[in-house]
C-alpha cells in the first residue's frame, strides 16, 4: 500500500488537466496535425465495417509479421483495427488512415509498399526477371536449332579428317 501511496504522491507532482477523461474518444489522439481534416464522409454501420476491413487489410500486424491487422487476433492488432474504425467513422479516407499509421510506424506498417522511389524495383523487378528469363530461354532454343540448320558446306573440310581419309585410302 505504501508503494501505491508513493506512486500517487509522485503523480500529484505532474501538471494535470482539471477535467477527468470521460471516454476513450474524449482522450483519443487527434490525427489532424498529421493527416489534416477528414476528406470523406463520416461512416457508420455496414459501410463502416467494410471500410475498416479495407484499410486494416493493408496494414501489417507489428507483432505477428506477415499477417494484416484485419486478420490478426493479436491484441495489439485489434487495438490498431479499433483505431482504424474510429478514424474511418470520422470520415478519414483509406489513404489518410494509411498515412497516419505510416507516420507512426514507418513504411514497414504498409503491407503493400508504395510504388515510388527505390520501391519501384519491387514492382518491376519480377517482370524484368521474367523477361530476361524468356530472352535467355529463346536464345538457348535458337542456339540449339542453328547448328542443325546450318549444315557444313561441302567445301568446308576438316584438314584432320582429310588426313585420316587419305591414310585410310592409302
Amino acid at each position: 500500500m505504501s508503494a501505491l501511496l508513493l506512486f500517487a504522491l509522485a503523480a500529484a507532482e505532474v501538471p494535470v488537466a482539471p477535467e477527468p477523461a470521460a471516454s476513450a474518444d474524449a482522450i483519443g489522439l487527434d490525427p489532424t496535425p498529421i493527416i489534416g481534416e477528414p476528406i470523406d464522409a463520416a461512416l457508420s454501420g455496414e459501410a463502416l465495417e467494410v471500410a475498416t476491413r479495407e484499410t486494416a487489410q493493408k496494414l501489417r500486424c507489428p507483432t505477428c509479421q506477415g499477417s494484416s491487422v484485419a486478420e490478426s487476433p493479436a491484441e495489439g492488432a485489434r487495438a490498431m483495427k479499433a483505431e482504424v474504425r474510429k478514424m474511418r467513422a470520422r470520415g478519414y479516407s483509406d489513404r489518410q488512415v494509411l498515412d497516419f499509421f505510416e507516420a507512426a510506424y514507418g513504411e514497414f506498417i504498409l503491407l503493400e509498399p508504395r510504388n515510388e522511389g527505390a520501391n519501384r524495383a519491387l514492382w518491376y523487378a519480377p517482370a524484368a526477371i521474367v523477361g530476361v528469363g524468356l530472352l535467355a530461354a529463346a536464345a538457348t532454343v535458337l542456339g540449339r536449332r542453328k547448328p542443325a540448320a546450318a549444315a557444313p558446306s561441302p567445301a568446308a573440310h576438316d584438314p584432320y579428317l582429310d588426313r585420316v581419309d587419305r591414310e585410310l585410302d592409302g
Partner: peptide, 16 residues
Amino acid sequence: GSTFPALIDVGSAAAV
C-alpha cells in the same frame, strides 16, 4: 511501486 505516474492508454491510441 513507482516514483513516476503510470498513465492508462485508453483505447491504445497513444501506443498506435
